[in-house]
């Protein structure tokens, strides 16, 4: 099964997928942006500033999802020693870091008109900052530790440890009193966000997921070429 991710046809698959995403991406982006900025209604309380949600929330979701992904693959890699998983985790990490930063910055911009401050050291925002630090640690271990096996080992442990932070971020708004509001969209039960605003949110989420896929495929390709180049030298 795992060979499926790393067989000689992988480049054909990457190319096909990239072409497919490229063909639909701009249509999706324009649809997403026009719904987010023009067609969606303003909020009854926050007015038009609620539109920041359409970039802030998807970015936060992606940053949490990609760290969970990295952590689980790292644990898997640590136990079963499957080399190719490292290529995947290394390709995801910069995307996750970027979206964590986007979530923090857009959240900060959103905080100014709604809360009245750019920054508050509440549990949600602080734990997001810690997530960014975990991403940084993961990336820098791979950059600084020259022995690849060692780098994999250390970064796997860091990622596994960072996994504890994910439920803390998720539930920080319920466990402690925070300035950040509780989650509007719940995994179980009804969400407290009107469908005319939920639809653009999900559309923007989908657009950004497609963007992530594009970046991931490029990064993954780069990593494979790097490995192949090393093998070439051994010849």
């Amino acid at each position: 099964m795992l060979n499926y991710f790393y067989n000689s046809n992988i480049f054909t698959w990457i190319e096909k997928l990239t072409n497919f995403i490229n063909s639909i991406f701009f249509a999706l982006l324009i649809a997403g942006l026009s719904f987010a900025l023009v067609f969606s209604p303003p909020d009854y309380l926050q007015g038009d500033s609620v539109r920041i949600m359409y970039v802030h929330v998807p970015a936060a979701w992606i940053s949490l999802a990609s760290f969970s992904c990295i952590a689980l693959l790292s644990i898997f890699n640590f136990i079963f020693k499957i080399k190719h998983l490292t290529l995947i985790t290394k390709s995801i990490a910069p995307i996750g870091l970027m979206f964590t930063c986007i979530a923090i910055v857009t959240g900060s911009i959103w905080g100014r008109p709604t809360w009245g401050t750019f920054w508050a050291w509440d549990a949600r925002i602080s734990s997001m900052l810690i997530l960014a630090l975990f991403y940084l640690a993961f990336i820098f271990i791979h950059k600084l530790v020259s022995d690849e096996d060692r780098a994999n080992k250390i970064s796997s442990i860091v990622a596994a440890f960072g996994l504890i932070n994910i439920p803390i971020i998720k539930y920080s708004v319920e466990w402690w009193s925070t300035l950040h509001q509780p989650a509007s969209i719940k995994i179980t039960g009804s969400s407290s966000i009107h469908s005319s605003m939920l639809m653009p949110l999900l559309l923007m989420f989908f657009v950004l997921i497609m963007y992530c896929a594009l970046i991931f495929l490029m990064k993954y390709k780069t990593e494979i070429i790097r490995i192949k180049k090393k093998n070439l030298k051994r010849l």
Partner: peptide
């Protein structure tokens, strides 16, 4: 010395409200 507003998790269009 400083007042911050804390809003809730409900989002809806003004007409609905």
């Amino acid at each position: 010395e400083r007042i911050l507003a804390k809003h809730d998790e409900n989002y809806m269009p003004p007409e609905l409200k």
